[in-house]
Amino acid sequence: MRYAMAIDTKKCVGCGDCVVACQTENNVPHGYCRDWIVENVSGSYPNVEIELRSERCNHCDNAPCVRCCPTGASHIVEGGIVMVTHNECIGCGACIESCPYDARYSHPEGYVDKCTFCKHRLDKGQNPACVEVCPTKCLHFGDLDDPNSDVSKALKNRRWKVLAPEAGTKPQLYFLT
């Protein structure tokens, strides 16, 4: 079991639905977000190429945040999801410093918070909230070990990249280009 997400950068229109869906689903405090959209523009007019990426925690295989956590609050659960136990977190900030994707933030209540791939929804057999609401269906989620999952099928037929592979974190967010 290895949960992963594939993001179609060609289909994404940058509407921000995933961001709002996540904020309402997970009660993210106002002014914070667990996912965000990056627009990358290259070339010069009229030959411009635009890449829109809906980004979130990469749930890395070699997660530096888990390695750096002094209390074990950051841990990996089944499916490779990186989770934070709130009442074990001391808020030292080591994991925030260690994340090359800046995917973590310090919750106003003190603990560190981040994307959970909507673990509570997965347990019920549902997709993460961001995937569910995407109007262009550009987010593909599923189990990499299952060849028939949405994400496996998306990765089979397309070229993809991951972010900052040089950081050595083995990220599990694949961006279809």
């Binding site: 921000g16 914070y32 965000w36």
Partner: peptide, 15 residues
């Protein structure tokens, strides 16, 4: 020119 920016208004305190 190359530009890369947050278009979903990400502005998390201290990050």
């Amino acid at each position: 020119m190359k530009e890369e920016l947050f278009v979903s208004g990400r502005n998390i305190p201290n990050i």
